[in-house]
Design a protein around this nucleic acid. Structure first.
Length: 567
RNA sequence: GUCCCCGUAGCUCAGUUGGAUAGAGCAACGGUUUUCUAAACCGUUGGCCGCGUGUUCGAAUCACGCCGGGGGCACCA
């Protein structure tokens, strides 16, 4: 349908030449949209309303005249077979109605292109580094990380589908104050277990129960006596490495079970030892954007849009969190990426300006740095909010979500809302295998299609020959019910739905599309029997549902949700 | 105080580069199954699109000002 829009744009501009208006090709093309309501045709434009004023003519009358001229141009073009009619409706909208062949044409394209169907190649292919999760290895992943993981992985799939190159990266904060604290926290627990005492956990120590489990594991591996005799400093160092490594392995396991994979894990520690942090600092100094004051070293980030200058080196000579992160992002640019996307938690809101400013200070284009803030997740069990407090060391982990609601519903729920809006996650709903659960609703449509195909195979031994042809057969004109037409119209819109998600970096945009497609299928199913005595109609309908199944599977796949054959 | 996000049906939310009568799902009520999965479908009820002013032929959408909710504003990470 995309080329219909292109051709129509061309004819529109040609016809418009006789009018005293100037309007760009892009504007015309953008105005040609699939109307919200089916009754307004397959494609619609409100452009006449826009230009009516310029031509000093009443919009409706102008639209009438113009559409007649346009129709003549269409009749003389290759579009003639694709368009049934055009009509002026409302205050001056021009609506285009496709012919049956044009509408069923989508099935041909799906059969031909299969997994490539809907891939709209963008004007510029970007080389994108997508950093997400990047949780400190100081505790298990929480629901907040789960949302970021689901978002990041889905976004990567969507961008890749649209032809961009995406590298998924996890920045591991494997050194620094919080790692030191983690080591001390584990050492404290080990001490407790070795001596059998139970003391108040010091302020600022990590206090989650997972540390007690790690302490037990360490003691079991090393032996209690050996740990008792170990010099204090040595044992602390052991605890630090052990806790960090154990937790990080746990994080990777959680992610793997959530079907979230990374191309690279980037170690902050290695960044530090590589000398790149110092080199970046020197670059900043050379550019004259660094100064000393109050015993610290500052970045003049206010020159680059930040609302205050930022400390790079504290008065105790250690770096702030920002400093290695500047070097890290500098590296991303040097590695050749032309777009850098970070998905961060809501507590990093104030961080965006200084990160962008730092990259601008290094001479990079700050607009190439996109920071997406994934807002908070509030867990509900039905109406009841599930309370959590990180300070007390209690939080709901991603592992719990995986165990309770499973991967598919978990991933679907995490991405079903725009990332910058708060997410209410109803555990009871996600767990439920009922129609209220949108994930199941869509998956069910997919499974239902499979069972129809199986029913046919059982009855006749194999799918009809017309079905297995690469290009759908001419009998598609048998598809004429309102539900069938609607289904095909929606299938045509798949590419645009994905592109919309890619352009806005919002995976959730696929959700309403898939809901609508699933609903259209269920409606079709209720009104039209697929396997009938009419062999041609049966074959045509089998092609239709097979194409629907493929698009459902593709769409769910882009969200990281599986498409079961049986439910 | 300041910056960002949110405010649409009883609930959860779509719809926002301005367009046609503001849409779904859930909840409530009523109906549909001899036949491919009723985890489904159909129907009914339900709206000062937070409030106000402005811009416009046209505003849920844009601008400004309020009100309400959440979050960010470290020599923490």
């Amino acid at each position: 349908m995309n080329d219909v829009r292109k051709q129509l744009t061309h004819l529109f501009l040609e016809t418009l030449k006789a009018y005293p208006v100037s309007i760009s090709e892009a504007e015309v093309e953008a105005s040609l949209q699939v109307p919200k309501e089916e009754k307004f045709g397959d494609l619609s434009t409100h452009l006449i309303l826009k230009i009516a004023k310029e031509t000093k003519r009443p919009p409706r009358a102008l639209a009438e005249t113009f559409s007649k001229e346009l129709w003549q141009a269409i009749q003389a073009s290759t579009l003639a077979s694709g368009l049934e009619k055009i009509a002026v409706e409302g205050p001056g909208f021009i609506n285009f109605y496709y012919t049956r062949d044009q509408i069923t044409g989508v099935l041909n394209r799906i059969k031909k292109e299969r997994a490539d169907f809907g891939r709209l190649v963008p004007e510029t292919k970007r080389n994108i580094l997508l950093e997400f999760v990047s949780a400190n290895p100081t505790g298990p992943l929480t629901v907040a990380h789960g949302r970021q993981a689901a978002l990041g992985d889905a976004l990567a799939k969507i961008l890749q589908f649209c032809g961009h190159r995406v590298t998924k990266e996890y920045y591991n904060n494997d050194e620094g104050v919080q790692i030191q604290t983690l080591g001390k926290s584990l050492d404290f627990r080990v001490e407790e277990k070795l001596t059998g005492t139970s003391n108040e956990i010091p302020e600022n120590y990590y206090r989650g129960d997972y540390l007690a489990a790690i302490a037990e594991k360490l003691i079991a591996e090393q032996g209690a006596d050996k740990l008792r005799q170990m010099p204090t400093a040595e044992r602390l160092a052991l605890c630090t490495d052990y806790s960090k490594d154990t937790i990080f392995l746990g994080i990777q396991k959680d992610l793997a079970d959530f079907s979230v994979t990374f191309d690279h894990y980037y170690s902050q520690k290695e960044l530090g030892t590589s000398g790149k942090v110092e080199k970046t600092l020197q670059e900043l100094k050379d550019k004259g954007v660094v100064y000393e004051g109050e015993g610290a070293v500052w970045l003049r980030s206010t020159d680059f849009g930040d609302d205050k200058d930022r400390v790079l080196i504290k008065s105790d000579k250690s770096y702030t969190y920002l400093t290695p992160d500047i070097a890290y992002h500098h590296e991303k640019f040097k590695r050749g990426f032309d777009e850098i996307i970070d998905i961060l938690g809501p507590d990093h809101h104030g961080y965006i300006a200084r990160l962008k400013a730092s990259q601008a200070a290094l001479g990079h284009d700050p607009n190439q740095v996109r920071v997406l803030i994934a807002q908070l997740v509030t867990l509900f069990e039905g109406d009841k909010q599930v309370r959590m407090s990180t300070r007390a060391g209690e939080f709901v982990t991603l592992r719990q979500i995986l165990d309770e609601v499973g991967k598919d519903a978990g991933r679907f729920f995490f991405v079903m809302r725009k990332f910058d809006a708060h997410l209410d996650f109803d555990l009871a709903l996600a767990k439920s295998q009922t129609p209220e659960n949108p994930a199941f609703y869509i998956q069910y449509a997919h499974a239902r299609i499979e069972s129809i195909k199986n029913a046919f195979k059982e009855k006749t031994g194999a799918l009809p020959s017309a079905f297995s042809e690469a290009v759908a057969p001419p009998i598609l004109n048998k598809l004429s019910s309102a539900q069938e037409i609607r289904l095909m119209q929606l299938l045509s819109g798949f590419g645009e739905a994905v592109l919309g998600a890619a352009n806005t970096l919002e995976p959730y945009r696929l959700v309403p599309y898939l809901m609508e497609l699933a609903a259209a299928f269920h409606r079709f199913y209720a009104e039209n029997r697929v396997v009938t005595e009419d062999d041609e109609l049966t074959a045509a309908r089998l092609v239709l549902i097979d194409c629907t199944q493929l698009v459902l599977r593709q769409g769910l796949g882009l969200l990281g949700v599986s498409a079961p054959l049986k439910m």
